Amino acid sequence: MPPPLNHPCLELELLDQTFFVKQLPVDAGVPVAIVSGLNAAQDNPSIFSITRTREEISIVGEAIGEDGEWKCIKIAGPMEFGMTGVICGFTTPLKNANVPVFAMSTWNTDYVLIPRGKVDEAVAALMEDGWKFRHISLKHA
């Protein structure tokens, strides 16, 4: 399934840094070290997300050095809020290539984390499907 629109806001960017994804029980609360790190990151902003539901707390952030197990593909954005089918169109070729994803959305765009060891497969599947990367070289994991 090709991208829903051929538009610069749908170009992809493979971010250089690695990421961590943590799941905590809902009654655990957000660790003080995580909150402190978030406050300290104001001078050096990076991707950081805390999502709490009735079942769990999920935390995603930039790993220190190359310790992260995930890489991130960012859809350029900003996208109009009413644009539909983007995440479905993006994840379908990844599903077909057997690449697991952890998706996060913001108002402006979507970020999709993939396991480090699956980067080349993910990039190849997306490019074959018609997605365009802004800057890419296949030497990732």
Results as ranks from 00 to 15, higher is better:
Cys9Pro: 01
Ala40Arg: 15
Lys132Glu: 14
Ser36Phe: 04
Lys95Gln: 14
Ile75Trp: 00
Lys71Ala: 09
Glu62Tyr: 00
Met127Val: 07
Asp27Met: 02
Gly37Gln: 10
Gly29Asn: 02
Gly82Cys: 07
Glu11Gln: 12
Asn6Ala: 13
Asp120Arg: 11
Lys132Val: 07
Gly77Tyr: 07
Pro115His: 08
Ile57Gln: 00
Asp110Ala: 06
Asp120Phe: 04
Asn39Cys: 12
Val60Ser: 02
Ala122Gln: 00
Ile87Pro: 05
Cys72Gly: 00
Ile75Phe: 03
Glu13Asn: 12
Ile114Glu: 01
Ala40Asn: 12
Val35Cys: 07
Ile64Glu: 12
Leu12Asn: 01
Phe20Ser: 13
Lys118Phe: 01
Glu121Phe: 02
Val21Lys: 07
Leu10His: 01
Ile64Gln: 14
Ala33Lys: 14
Ile73Asn: 00
Thr84Gln: 12
Asp110His: 07
Ala141Leu: 10
Ala63Tyr: 12
Pro25Lys: 15
Ile114Met: 01
Val99Gln: 00
Thr84His: 12
Asp27Asn: 10
Ser58Pro: 01
Trp70His: 03
Gly82Val: 13
Asp110Met: 08
Asn108Val: 01
Leu94Gly: 03
Leu15Asn: 05
Val32Tyr: 12
Pro4Gly: 11
Glu66Asn: 12
Gly77Glu: 04
Thr109Gly: 04
Ala40Thr: 04
Asn39Thr: 07
Asp16Ser: 13
Glu121Leu: 06
Glu66Tyr: 07
Phe133Ala: 03
Arg54Glu: 15
Pro100Phe: 01
Ile34Lys: 01
Glu69Ala: 14
Met83Ala: 10
Asp16Phe: 05
Met1Ala: 06
Asn39Ile: 05
Phe90Asp: 01
